[in-house]
């Protein structure tokens, strides 16, 4: 912890005491003066200690930065961090993380379009937050055949000595994945066919009910409202099979996953990570916030030091799955 707030003792004069300079009154004044002096001395000592700690932290941060590690700064309070433009983020310096094209496993990324991520981090007494930003000329947030979502991911080890390539069966990793399509689902509503193709309709959606216009000729079938009948839902096989990408409601644009090698990515049953992202002036800014410690065996537990890696996808350039940009493992340290 940085500091407990300094305790100051204030003593209210007791109005029941008779005014005047008797011995008892003088005694109380002396005690009061003594208390103030002791308090002042303690304060000075504490300030000197804090200044020392600040210098130590600054030196630690400098040395971490110098060797390419991420110093995680600490806030004693619990400021708003989920909003990518929250004031707390304005004062935190960013670390530039280089990313390169995935070229080890099929399918590879041929043409990189992103070369670095800016990473800001902040720990509070209970949470850790990351703010990631990168240049991208086009926000890719729509779902369609042949379209791919912008995305960013944070990889964390679940065992010592993890490999960068999404872990191994002996050394699994946890991945926190934010996707632009999920952000759009949350900011607006679940993306439907008519959002991109207003005139795409089938003559018949079995067991479905028109959403608002209930007339016989209505084509107003909306997901999910028109498809509440369990029989109608049978026509969405991925959703029926419990596929996490096929769900119509989503509370967060971030998914928690585990992996033990390429092609093994699996959505975790429990997810506590929160996130938010926005695109402005050719740049994505995304925050991911999580408790430092959890009781989920598939969650990375944030202790003082660790490693983290990043991946980023440019949807417009056909980035999807393994066609991604990724960083190496980067050590981090929570600098208290």
């Amino acid at each position: 912890m940085t500091s407990d707030s300094t305790s100051t003792v204030t003593i209210q004069p007791d109005r029941r005491q008779p005014r005047g300079g008797d011995g008892v009154g003088l005694f109380f004044v002396m005690i009061l003066l003594l208390a103030v002096m002791i308090g002042a001395i303690m304060l000075m000592v504490r300030q000197a200690q804090e200044a020392g700690e600040r210098r130590e932290r600054a030196a630690r941060i400098e040395s971490l930065t110098a060797r390419g590690a991420i110093p995680v700064r600490v806030s004693s309070a619990e400021p708003e961090l989920l909003a990518p433009d929250a004031p707390a983020w304005h004062t935190i310096p960013a670390v530039a993380v280089r990313v390169g094209p995935q070229n080890m496993a099929m399918p590879m990324l041929d043409q990189p379009t992103i070369d670095q991520l800016l990473v800001q981090t902040l720990a509070t007494p209970t949470r850790i937050a990351l703010r990631l930003s990168w240049d991208d000329q086009t926000p890719d947030m729509s779902v369609d055949a042949g379209r791919f979502s912008d995305a960013v991911a944070v990889q964390l080890p679940l065992a010592p000595d993890p490999v960068i390539t999404m872990g191994t069966p002996q050394g699994p990793v946890q991945i926190l994945l934010w996707k632009a399509i999920w952000q759009k689902d949350i900011d607006e509503r679940f993306q439907d066919v008519q959002d991109l193709h207003p005139n795409y309709w089938a003559d018949q959606y079995w067991f479905a009910k028109p959403a608002t216009d209930r007339s016989e000729e209505s084509k107003d079938y909306r997901v999910p409202d028109s498809f509440q009948d369990p029989a109608a839902q049978a026509y969405f096989p991925a959703r029926q099979a419990g596929n996490p990408v096929a769900q119509w409601t989503r509370s967060q644009p971030v998914e928690e996953l585990t992996a033990e090698g390429f092609g093994t990515l699996s959505t975790q049953r429990r997810s506590v990570a929160q996130g938010r992202g926005f695109w402005k002036n050719g740049r994505w800014t995304v925050t991911i916030v999580r408790p430092l410690l959890t009781d989920d065996a598939f969650d990375h537990q944030f202790h003082a030091v660790g490693q983290v890696a990043f991946a980023v996808w440019d949807g417009a350039a056909g980035n999807v799955g393994g066609r991604k940009h990724y960083s190496q493992w980067i050590p981090f340290e929570i600098v208290r």
Partner: peptide, 11 residues
């Protein structure tokens, strides 16, 4: 093989 934009999976 087709991409279903509601299921967000291929079919």
């Amino acid at each position: 093989v087709f991409y279903n934009l509601i299921s967000r999976a291929s079919e």
